[in-house]
């Protein structure tokens, strides 16, 4: 099974009816010349790329941006339209006083399957004790957390909140909490490798390309910035395929990953086996 763990469904047709809301979403998330498309196109793109499931991420930065740009309810709406292909996460702005209640509702009543946090966008440190209740709710529901880590293309984001080392304290405090350092913590590639090497509960996804094309970028970060055998021999169980769609098409990110000189066993883990463990789909 192939699972893309990092998709922002900002332009999925069924949640794009309100033009003013769509414009705000584009401004907040840093998407400009992109347009909505029907779910039928998503199906065709998944079929072409041989991708079985997508993890859809909402985004709540309401205290900073004045609006939830992709809400938990919108994710729930998409899941209800295609529960075979889509897995939905929740998002909550930790700066809200009722953040814990919002998360409880999203996981219990909307039946969402994980939490997406955006420290650099929400201007919070992931190891801030104010966030601990959110992690404890995730543990209560046995769902993972995806942290937007490293460099974000979104406007009004600060790298100081998203260094991979900031997630280590959370990993140690909550060793049963499955965590994903997204974007492989770019530009802190080696630092991210260290964290996922050391902590059994921490994963990192491949969402996005920061320079060049996927083949060039993944070769540079996974074969040159990292030792050429680090993945194959050390962290094969800890890397998740993520595309960061709509910035990048899943087919192209997948093709870039598949160009790496890895064994089939390891590639299968990266493309879906590890995601199944991270998401708790098995066992």
């Amino acid at each position: 099974m192939v699972i893309d763990v990092h998709v922002h469904p900002a332009f999925y047709g069924p949640i794009c009816d309100d033009k003013n809301r769509l414009l705000k979403r584009k401004q907040v998330m840093g998407y400009d010349l992109m347009s909505p498309f029907p779910l039928e196109l998503v199906e065709k793109q998944m079929a072409f790329a041989n991708i079985d499931k997508l993890v859809l991420l909402p985004e709540d930065t309401e205290t900073i941006d004045g609006e939830i740009v992709i809400s938990n309810e919108e994710i729930k709406k998409l899941i209800d339209l295609d529960s075979q292909r889509f897995i939905g996460f929740a998002s909550v702005d930790p700066n809200k006083k009722d953040a814990a209640a919002i998360l409880q509702y999203a996981l219990k009543d909307l039946n969402l399957k994980g939490l997406a946090l955006y420290p650099s966008k929400q201007h919070v440190y992931p190891n801030d004790p104010a966030l601990f209740p959110l992690y404890e709710i995730c543990l209560e529901h046995n769902v993972p957390v995806t942290f937007d880590a490293g460099l974000s293309w979104q406007p009004n984001t600060l790298l100081k909140y998203a260094h991979p080392y900031l997630f280590e304290e959370v990993a140690v405090r909550y060793p049963q909490l499955r965590m994903n350092i997204s974007h492989f913590g770019f530009p802190w590639i080696v630092e991210t490798a260290a964290i996922i090497l050391k902590h059994p509960n921490v994963y990192a996804d491949t969402a996005g390309v920061y320079m060049d094309c996927p083949e060039q970028f993944f070769s540079d970060i996974f074969q040159k910035m990292m030792g050429s055998l680090w993945i194959e021999h050390n962290i094969a169980d800890k890397i998740l395929f993520g595309s960061n769609n709509p910035r990048f098409r899943p087919a192209r990110i997948k093709r870039g990953l598949e160009s790496l000189p890895l064994s089939k066993i390891t590639m299968d883990k990266l493309l879906g086996g590890n995601a199944a463990n991270f998401l708790g789909l098995e066992g």
Binding site: D32, W153, F248, R252
Partner: peptide
């Protein structure tokens, strides 16, 4: 498909890499 195309960089006007 694979060549060092100048278009393969981040495009702020799209919010995406030119792929």
């Amino acid at each position: 498909l694979h060549k060092d195309y100048a278009h393969s960089h981040f495009l702020p006007s799209y919010g995406a890499i030119g792929g």
